[in-house]
Design a protein around this nucleic acid. Structure first.
Lengths: 361, 361
DNA sequence: TTGTAGGCGTTATCAA
DNA sequence: TTGATAACGCCTACAA
């Protein structure tokens, strides 16, 4: 075939060249660079010297093809620009680098088909995957995991290595926090309906609201974004809600902006709680938010993958990653509703009554 | 040898498997995925269908060994969590994928040594680099560019392919905008002192301020961050500045927060201008900001690299990427200074007078 | 238009 | 301790 080298470029010296020059076999040269265990130290030195003179460097690609070890891992996320994922990536890539691995990045743009494609294409080039908040089915996840070690983040698939950012307890605490401040009508503005994270968060909010007898309204938001948050501000007001728990900080910020546009202030008129903790401290007002310690989560996920690479039997690990509620400036004591608004609302259940859940389209 | 697959992992289907299943030769399968020029369209369809059913994807590593082309590119940035870089990455990775390239990600954490190391290690596995806002020396950049095609973003190195996000004119317009609003004492809160971006922005602000006879104060901020912005809020107030131009939106947001903490409102008391445009619309108040159209910049950078891959002679391209000033809610008419403050300040030069530049540590 | 066959550079098995 | 040799999975010149 001889279809290379790209015109005028000298081809890099190969192992054969070094072997010839040093008067040994290719196998010996190979061993001089890899497992030099059973090699005569003198031979190693000779070979290394010749290699250095020729400027020989082992070809990573060929090595990978032969050994299956590429020194690469891949991180696949639904949206790089989401601060939560960005922070997670940062931790992941730092840890991977420390361990000597280079990292591929795949952005699936929230598209299951794209996610699937990325996983398939990358499989041959990586030793393992960290798949964050997958949008593909469990079946597909299993399919990919059968080919390469794979660590899930925020997805609950029995029998697989998974890191679950445990925001449930913190959301419960957030509800307590709001109840303590006197809020009786609260809302949960959801994220991707099918995602594990959203399920966990909503369940926690629902349970806690029930426990405290709060009136809870559910607002769906297909894609967690500033826009989605802003879009539901009006309904929030119409529903006479005095506090909103958002799926994440972006949504929360959208809510704040949407309310502001209608002259409703935070936290004066309405309290807002976010989640992630990446941008929460940098917004105005600073958001009361659940700190997911994203960077640490990224590191931990890669640690899990490294374990899996060493010992494939260590799959089926379920690691929960604790989170904290951080109270900042977007939550405050409930503001009594103007009488004219209150009159039009469903009756507020007493403290011991059960939660009334309403869904808004 | 048969030294793979790593225990219990299912091997991926190979070209041979597809060939057998489709009743054609391996060469035909190969052609169906590569140069299908001289292939019967029906054959191509059949092969592709079988491949899809089997979940076959060409093995990039093997392909690379044979062709010398890895199908990989690398993107190296100083900080993934910076929204500007995140958005740029998104565009870059999308475009790379469309062109059939997988993308490595390197986060140098603003550390020149790390950046250097990433470039060196990745070189063997990629066909080219996009290096964003490098922190290494020109000499080192040239060194790496000699090994692999390399496109620079926001770095001006003669003779190399580079994409320059041209914020200068927009900063000038921002100064005009502020001057038109009656501001006389303005500040520039800088980013990484040695970065090309910062140099360009500062130069533009300085020139425009001079032209309009504004009093300009320079505030350094080593790392562009919310914290850096907040940290200089107090000095901003002390200096009696009525408007601040920040290096980017994060710094701008920090300034807003720092001022708010001292009961100075934006834009009531002080106007603030940011840059990047990623988060500007989602802050409160929405930032008047320079929209760098980051995602498009990322796409353009990869396009440049693809050009370079096709035609190595096309280096030394200097592409400028236009930006826009977007006026939102963080700038307003200048507020007259309280007399007691004004009295303590350096005399305000008249419209025709030259700019007085002060530097604050 | 399709098949055959040899090679890309390395590592691992087996024998020496 | 070292050498010969067969893969790894794919691509492409050449033959058909």
């Amino acid at each position: 075939m001889t279809h290379r080298p790209p015109l005028g470029m000298e081809p890099a010296p190969t192992i054969a060249r070094v072997a010839a020059e040093a008067g040994v076999s290719r196998a010996t040269v190979s061993r001089a660079f890899g497992a030099s265990h059973h090699l005569n130290p003198g031979t190693v030195a000779t070979v290394r010297a010749v290699a250095a003179r020729l400027g020989y460097v082992p070809n990573q690609t060929a090595r990978a093809l032969s050994t299956g070890r590429t020194g690469n891992v891949a991180l696949v996320v639904p949206d790089i620009t989401n601060p939560f994922f960005a922070a997670l990536m940062r931790g992941a890539q730092a840890r991977a680098r420390e361990a000597g691995f280079a990292m591929f990045l795949g952005d699936s743009d929230e598209l299951p088909a794209l996610e699937d494609e990325l996983l398939a294409k990358l499989a041959a080039q990586v030793e393992g995957f960290v798949l964050v908040s997958p949008r593909i089915t469990q079946e597909r996840i299993r399919h990919h995991a059968a080919r390469r070690p794979l660590v899930l983040v925020n997805s609950e698939v029995a029998g697989m290595a998974r890191l679950l950012v445990d925001t449930g307890p913190s959301y419960a605490r957030a509800v307590e926090h709001l109840a303590d401040l006197g809020h009786r009508r609260v809302a949960y503005v959801s994220g991707p309906t099918l995602s594990w994270s959203n399920g966990q968060r909503f369940a926690a909010v629902l349970a806690a609201a029930h426990k405290r007898g709060l009136h809870l309204t559910l607002f769906p938001a297909a894609r967690p974004s500033f826009e989605a948050g802003r879009a539901c501000a009006e309904q929030l007001i119409d529903q006479g809600v005095t506090a909103a728990l958002a799926f994440d900080d972006s949504v929360a910020q959208g809510i704040v902006a949407g309310l502001a546009a209608r002259a409703v202030t935070v936290p004066g008129d309405v309290s807002v709680v976010g989640c992630d903790g990446v941008i929460a401290a940098t917004t105005f007002p600073a958001l009361t938010s659940i700190d997911a310690r994203c960077t640490a989560a990224g590191e931990r996920a890669v640690d899990l993958l490294l374990d899996l690479l060493r010992d494939p039997a260590s799959a089926d690990q379920r690691i929960t990653h604790p989170t904290d509620l951080v109270v900042r400036a977007s939550t405050a004591r409930a503001c009594p509703l103007p009488a004219r608004v209150a009159a039009t609302l469903p009756r507020n259940p007493g403290p011991a009554a059960s939660t009334l859940l309403e869904s808004q389209s």
